[in-house]
């Protein structure tokens, strides 16, 4: 039969199926699309007494304010500083770790190291903070250790000052996520055909040659994709980490955009302004993603979309 069934007959025939699909649609509309619509308060003057609909429009007022806001520029600087350091240290380390772990031939030892390396990923930032904060205090473990090596030095409250905070946040984040970040690379490495290594050995390659000329080129695609994602996420600092490690003494180096949005919005009740800051941040992130993707397409022939 070629007769087109009406929409209603089709829907009634798949009642059970639609009853499974529509709740998903409703959930997305409520929890994803209503907040997206709510972004319009960035162009309005929303106060607690208003609804999103009846708040007065103010155009780009809040966005102009962003450019006059010295606090915003400070948080932008901290966000970029931490992210760039992370790109420099936190991005390559999982690759190096995966390369080295891939060279371990004892399967049980390899698996054991991998299991251990995932451990910090499953720790809450609160727990990590509970370990780090006393360790890094003036009388803490790290100062104790450094003073043992160099008895003349003065104890430093590492988290009680802005200096060095960027590095601390990057190192602790790398500590937490290195093993987890290596999973994808290790999987990519396990997919490399052994013939490639055998051929390399015939050509006289040693271990380093094999790593450099077989393994690395074979995972280059994976590296590129993850690099594009890392670049597009450059304005996302680790919010939970910052909530835990930020304090009034290191605030000059640890106040990042996400923290600023949270504080001005939820605590300062400047809903419209902080939404504008968040939207501005999302716009820059989109531009960065497009840019990184475009560059990769041009020079590497690989891209995300």
């Amino acid at each position: 039969m070629l007769k087109q069934e009406s929409l209603l007959t089709r829907l009634s025939r798949q009642k059970a199926l639609q009853a499974m699909a529509i709740p998903g649609l409703i959930w997305m509309i409520v929890f994803n699309y209503i907040p997206m619509y709510g972004v319009i308060i960035a162009f309005k003057e929303y106060r607690v007494i208003n609804t999103i609909g009846n708040a007065p429009w103010v155009g780009l007022t809040h966005f102009r304010e962003i450019f006059r806001d010295t606090d915003f520029f400070l948080t932008m600087k901290n966000t970029l500083g931490i992210s760039l350091l992370k790109l420099l240290i936190g991005f390559p380390l999982p690759i190096v770790f995966a390369l080295l772990l891939n060279e371990i031939r004892t399967i049980r030892f390899k698996r054991w190291v991998q299991t251990v390396s995932y451990l910090p990923h499953f720790l809450s930032w609160v727990v990590l903070g509970g370990i780090m904060i006393p360790w890094l205090s003036e009388t803490g473990f790290i100062n104790e250790l450094l003073t043992k090596i160099n008895p003349g030095r003065e104890a430093v409250p590492f988290l009680g000052r802005p200096e060095g905070f960027w590095m601390l946040s990057v190192l602790s984040d790398t500590w937490k996520e290195m093993g987890w970040g290596a999973i994808i690379y290790l999987a990519a490495m396990s997919g490399i055909p052994p013939e490639l290594y055998e051929a390399a050995v015939v050509d006289g390659a040693n271990r380093f040659h094999k790593m450099r000329y077989v393994t690395l080129p074979c995972i280059a695609g994976t590296i590129t994709i993850l690099l594009i994602l890392a670049i597009s996420g450059i304005l996302n600092t680790n919010f939970e980490q910052m909530l835990v490690l930020n304090n009034p003494l290191n605030n000059d180096a640890s106040n990042v955009i996400d923290l600023y949005v949270y504080r001005t919005g939820i605590r300062g009740l400047r809903f419209s302004y902080s939404t504008a800051v968040g939207l501005f941040k999302a716009l820059i992130a989109l531009v960065l993603l497009m840019g990184a993707n475009g560059l990769s397409k041009k020079y590497q022939g690989r891209s995300l979309f």
Binding site: V30, N32, I34, M36, Y37, G38, I52, F271
Partner: peptide, 10 residues
């Protein structure tokens, strides 16, 4: 996504 504040208001 709508971001922190619009989600909070929802």
């Amino acid at each position: 996504n709508g971001g922190l504040i619009p989600t909070f208001l929802l």
